[in-house]
Design a protein around this nucleic acid. Structure first.
Length: 511
RNA sequence: GCCAGGGUAGCUCAGUGGUAGAGCAGGGGACUCAUAAGCCCUUGGUCGGGAGUUCAACUCUCCCCCCUGGCACCA
């Protein structure tokens, strides 16, 4: 069994921004942590079908597939740049996905979960969508922004959502861990309460050609969430053909965390998705879990193209490095809540936590070992109470760290690690190795102090690895400890030679 | 409007019936292994407003104000 995590598949109608990056980094950090505990699998992807992609492609007079492919490449190159280590790639135009979606549609049809019905309503020709009363203005009319509005009757396929309402309500009530953080559960229950009516899951081909065809009715394609949500199972190997080169579904499912933004919890992931799975025959103990994150605002305002405050993650990674960006995005927000993005905060975090705290600890430790002990650390069991105290502190930090990850709160894990760094830097002042080095009688204590500092550095680097993989690797390399990554105290051999120190976190100012 | 989250030191946030906390920023000091980093000490808040319950409220109840989000296919 692998610990299975997914992210929302990103819609390929526009370039990625800092919010996309945050979500993928969050998922990547969680999965990297999980890999320290056992097998794990991260699925990331893109949603390439749909009306907006078709329209955007038409504007440039190119095929939807080519347009989607171009934007997809932008996402892929960003994930590369940000060091997102994915195990699977869910691109919804993948023929394997298509086949599996069609199998699901057929199965639902066979079970009587789908039906065809006529809908008549006001339709905006310009926007290519049906309008509801919500679109009416104060005068009760559809405004000029909708262009020509006609009364149109259209036949479509519907999914029987409403009949599973009671089941879902009961499931969410009896599974309070279905949604993290917990306060979202109330919001979800309210939304379920309001649920009425079924879900339209098709569009006639003449109106939307860019989608997956219904296997039993070729005049229609799947629309909106149906195709997209299914990526979580199709790319995990559900209904996969032999030789498809997809994972073993039983090895991954149920998903431990669908990492998504708060905007798509209701109704898609909190209502449509569990009901779809239920209708497909998934038992309650095979239901996935949701991890719902908040948004990054910019100077208090929501990010938007019209405000011109969209933050480009690729540019930030180029300027400050992927690790600096990853660290900031993980440290300065509590999962589920919103936060304000600013370069100033990024630099504060980088300088005070990474350069001054962690980087300096490692650098001074290796320097002292080189200077006072020819680069060799040797454990000598003096049982000095202050050294024992740091060891005990490390134990407490480890507990906090694991607990934080169980709750999908990397910021709390990082806070715990920072506390250990602070204590280790305090220990340096307390023991003053530069003084011990002048007193031959203290050589055992000096050895133990240096071992303790080196071991703390090793442990801290290992703990930081899920968030700042590149920097952690550099630190471990300087400690000559690339093979000692266990998240347990005392894994540095009792006699061990360190490498040469080089600052891992160069400063961005010139003070 | 309904629902939810939030309003605590200059900034970012934690806290929860019993004399207000952390980190960063600001001020002072001792040291020197280190990326002029680190360490120690320290200035700083009528805990959004009002009323109530209580021996005691930032913490519970009620009313109000402000911000954000969801309810409407943007991570």
């Amino acid at each position: 069994m692998k610990y299975f995590v997914t992210t929302a598949i990103d819609y390929t109608n526009a370039a990625p921004h800092i919010g996309h990056a945050y979500e993928k980094i969050l998922a990547d950090v969680i999965i990297r942590y999980r890999r320290t505990q056992g097998p794990a699998f991260l699925l990331i992807g893109v949603d390439q079908h749909g009306q907006k992609v078709q329209q955007a492609a038409q504007k440039e007079n190119i095929a939807p597939a080519d347009f989607a492919e171009r934007v997809t490449a932008q996402f892929l190159s960003l994930w590369e740049r940000l060091n997102i280590q994915r195990d699977g790639w869910a691109a919804t135009t993948d023929p394997r996905h298509k086949r599996a979606v069609q199998k699901v549609l057929q199965a639902l049809q066979d079970k009587g979960e789908l039906y065809k019905a006529k809908y008549s309503g006001y339709y905006s020709v310009r926007q290519e969508q049906f309008l509801t009363d919500k679109e009416r203005n104060a005068e009760g009319e559809f405004g000029p922004e909708w262009g020509e509005v006609v009364l149109l009757e259209e036949e479509n396929w519907y999914f029987r959502l409403a009949k599973h309402k009671d089941w879902l309500q009961n499931f969410v009530r009896t599974h309070p861990d279905f949604v993290t953080p917990a306060f979202r559960q109330v919001e979800l229950l309210n939304a379920i309460e309001r649920l009425s009516g079924d879900l339209c899951v098709s569009r006639p081909r003449e109106r939307l050609s860019w989608g997956i065809e219904f296997p039993f009715d070729h005049e229609y394609v799947t629309y909106v969430w149906f195709d997209a949500l299914l990526n979580y199972v199709t790319f995990a190997g559900y209904e996969a053909d032999p030789g498809s080169n997809l994972p073993d579904f039983a090895d991954l499912w149920p998903c431990r965390a669908h990492v998504i933004g708060k905007d798509i919890m209701v109704p898609a992931h909190g209502i449509y998705w569990p009901i779809m799975l239920h209708a497909m025959g998934f038992p309650d103990d095979q239901m996935p879990r949701l991890t719902v994150h908040g948004w990054w605002n910019v100077e208090g305002a929501k990010m938007s193209k019209s405000l011109g405050n969209v933050v480009d993650p690729a540019q930030l990674a180029d300027q400050y490095g992927a690790d600096a960006l990853r660290y900031y995005l993980m440290r300065d927000i509590a999962t589920g809540h919103d936060a304000d993005f600013s370069i100033e905060r990024l630099l504060i975090r980088y300088h005070s936590d990474l350069a001054n705290g962690l980087g300096n600890l490692v650098n001074r430790t290796i320097n002292m070992v080189q200077r006072y002990h020819s680069g060799l650390v040797k454990k000598s069991n003096t049982n000095d109470p202050e050294l024992e105290a740091i060891k005990a502190a490390a134990g407490l930090v480890l507990n906090r760290y694991h607990e934080a990850f169980v709750q999908f709160q990397p910021h709390a894990a990082l806070e715990a690690v920072s506390d250990l760094v602070t204590q280790a830097n305090g220990l340096v002042e307390l023991k003053a190795p530069w003084k011990l080095a002048k007193e031959p009688a203290q050589s055992d204590l000096l050895q133990d102090v240096l071992y303790t500092l080196a071991e703390t550095s090793r442990l801290v680097a290992a703990l930081m690895e899920p968030v700042i993989p590149n920097s952690a690797a550099k630190i471990l390399e300087q400690l000559n400890a690339a093979d000692y990554r266990e998240l347990v105290w005392g894994k540095l051999p009792a006699e061990h030679r360190l490498g040469e120190p080089t600052p891992v976190f160069p400063r961005f100012d010139d003070r």
